[in-house]
Write a protein that binds this DNA or RNA. Structure first.
Lengths: 143, 143
DNA sequence: TTATCTGCAAAATCTTTGCACTTGG
DNA sequence: CCAAGTGCAAAGATTTTGCAGATAA
């Protein structure tokens, strides 16, 4: 189930955060690029096109806020910048397929790690709350 | 099979890189902390204790070189700094268990992703070369 | 000897912080 | 109104680069 604009705004209001034009722009950008894993700078560039007065600081502060509220998740793909992804309930457990040739990041929707997680609990006494799995390889287009 | 000091030096020599005292120090530090996932700065601090003249620049350049030679692997656990791990043949496919309370990173030695990788090849036509899997949760000590 | 390596200082990135001004509710 | 939010500029943190001098082979 995709979280929509109103649902995110309600989450903000419920925690006594204000709905500002800047926050609206950022949320819209995130929703319109659900599949993209945008970095702060990419979001900044897009936001500038909508309203040139938006500052980088606000981008970072809003992204941090949305992470705190559980709306977003931070990701790192090794290019030195943090990337962000909407924390869609259904999609919560998916994996990233990163092409070593073109760098494109696509997603694989199925989890299929339950057996492994159970084994880890049993062998290491480590209780798993979440996971991140990245596969590196060659995508269909690059083969 | 753990790669030893001589094996790493041979790799360097084979590619016409020199064995300098600084590189020896760094390699020793890595070998003596196989289980630790050290950052560049941590390696720098340790190296300074052995020879106070070692520069941060050399640490970064040597680590980059060792990554290029396949001796090391870069890792990121979300604390803003790159960490490094010896690329031990046998251990190649293990997973990281990151405790959300104390931050400790331990390893789980078994891979168990073959079935999932096969499914991804079949469904996405994406040929997997490598993977990185992190589990976030609560470790035995913190429970 | 000489191509490679090193340390320093400076630059380049990415991200955070202090502060005075603005604004949503 | 006023607590919360914003933009700017400056500071922080991590990593990279230019360069002149040092050194392994």
């Amino acid at each position: 189930m995709v979280m929509n604009f109103d649902a995110i705004c309600s989450k903000l209001k419920n925690e006594n955060y204000k709905i500002t034009p800047q926050r609206e722009i950022i949320i819209h950008i995130l929703l319109n690029n659900e599949d993209k894993h945008l970095s702060a700078e990419e979001i900044y560039d897009m936001a500038k096109k909508i309203n040139p007065d938006v500052g980088m600081t606000t981008i970072y502060r809003t992204l941090d806020l949305l992470v705190e509220l559980g709306v977003l998740q931070k990701l790192e793909f090794g290019d030195g910048r943090t990337r962000y992804e909407l924390n869609n309930e259904d999609m919560h457990h998916h994996h990233h397929l990163i092409c070593l040739k073109c760098g494109e990041v696509q997603e694989f929707e199925q989890d299929l790690l339950e057996a492994l997680e159970e084994k880890i609990l049993e062998k290491k006494d480590f209780l798993i709350v979440d996971h991140k799995l990245k596969f590196y390889g060659i995508c269909r287009k690059c083969r």
